[in-house]
């Protein structure tokens, strides 16, 4: 089966994909209803606690006490009536600013180092993709990678102005590598992320965390930036690639 509309705005190579591997059909939506938000939050809390012993609160955050803040918006993948994966978005007060010591000046310096004009970006409007999770029983089917890509859609990023927003993210190196391999979305280091107790089971000396910048017209392939949401997709993953097809 061939994919259509896979040309990218970033001039990255696009491969015509055969879709013979086993796939899963997912409905991808932004969590708007209260029930969708609650289910997304509980999935994030369950997975982060299972793997990293992290807790969540809407009232406060304390990285030394292992209590994280929730994102402001969520995008999710549903199979049947069950949310099987989701990601969050900080629309202000981003994690890298709050805890990563990333300033607007750091972002300007990163843009300049890439020979980009900071005036072309809305430095007041920051976005950060965060908390990408899959239900443990659905891991390995490409849902996490698909959600990472879908989270970088223009629809979910929701820029309000003509200038593109500043998009940041924070993860360990292996996570960046994994998602780049499967989605083609590239990232640029802003600075190393400071060490906190909350990340004790996530990061390591060999796999440190970094705050990174994502430039829409440079880093996000069109197939993700212009991804249709809400929609239904067939998603399949093998060891080297993520494949998907819109079912409308």
């Amino acid at each position: 089966m061939k994919f259509s509309n896979l040309k990218t705005g970033t001039q990255k190579e696009v491969i015509s994909l055969d879709f013979s591997a086993s796939t899963v059909t997912i409905e991808v939506k932004e969590a708007i209803k209260r029930s969708e938000i609650i289910e997304s939050q509980y999935l994030i809390a369950e997975v982060y606690n299972k793997y990293y012993k992290i807790f969540f609160s809407k009232d406060y955050s304390d990285l030394e006490a292992k209590i994280e803040p929730y994102p402001h918006r969520y995008i999710y993948a549903k199979v049947g009536d069950e949310i099987v994966g989701c990601a969050g978005l900080y629309t202000h007060n981003t994690y890298v600013e709050k805890y990563g010591d990333v300033s607007t000046e750091d972002i300007i310096n990163t843009l300049l180092s890439l020979n980009l004009d900071p005036n072309h970006y809305n430095l007041e409007e920051k976005r950060e993709i965060t908390k990408i999770v899959s239900k443990p029983e659905w891991v390995g089917k490409g849902i996490g990678a698909f959600i990472w890509g879908a989270a970088y859609s223009k629809f979910f990023l929701g820029n309000q102005t003509e200038k593109p927003p500043i998009i940041t993210c924070c993860a360990k190196l292996s996570t960046f590598q994994y998602f780049e391999k499967f989605t083609g979305i590239t990232t640029h280091k802003i600075k190393s992320f400071p060490e906190y107790k909350i990340h004790e089971y996530y990061r390591s000396q060999r796999d440190p965390m970094e705050s990174r910048l994502v430039i829409p017209n440079l880093d996000i392939p069109n197939r993700w930036y212009n991804l249709k949401i809400p929609s239904v997709y067939n998603v399949g993953k093998d060891t080297n690639s993520l494949k998907f097809q819109s079912l409308g």
Binding site: E46, N49, F55, F56, D59, Y60
Partner: peptide, 9 residues
């Protein structure tokens, strides 16, 4: 426990 993991307060 999930209720408390999700909302520590």
């Amino acid at each position: 426990p999930i209720d408390y993991i999700a909302h520590w307060s």
